[in-house]
Amino acid sequence: MIETSYVYGLLGGLMIGCAAAMLLLGNGRIMGASGIIGGLVDGSARGDWQGPALFIAGLIAAPWLAILVTGLAADTNATSNPVVLVAAGLLVGLGARLANGCTSGHGVCGISRLSMRGIGATVLYLLAGGVTVALFRHVLGVI
């Protein structure tokens, strides 16, 4: 049985991969969300801030426009627990910058070039994510 979410997942995944391919072959940049965002936030992008700023503008505006045009509903279904949201955000931001990458940089761009760093990072964050969900959902019942 093929779920429709698999088809959308594959289609959306191909779009993500094409976006990364476009940035690599066009501008010679690795499409890592945490690197692009973090470089602007901590100033490490230095002279090259226009590219990251425009990338982020597109990243925010395109889903907004798509929802506006199609009239489809979108929801993150995120928790409304402010402690969980803030703790999770801090961990994601800190961890991704320490690791020099997140799901897009290490996961998509790293694995596709068979980088040991990308593969190692992906194995470890999947492991930590799995343990966290198991602990906070099934043991503690918080999420």
Binding site: S34, G95, R97, C102, G130, V131, T132
Partner: peptide
């Protein structure tokens, strides 16, 4: 260490930077 911290936050809220 960074990847483990990142993964914990990702699991907690289900959101990553992108």
């Amino acid at each position: 260490i960074g990847s483990l911290i990142f993964g914990a936050g990702w699991g907690l809220a289900g959101l990553c930077p992108g």
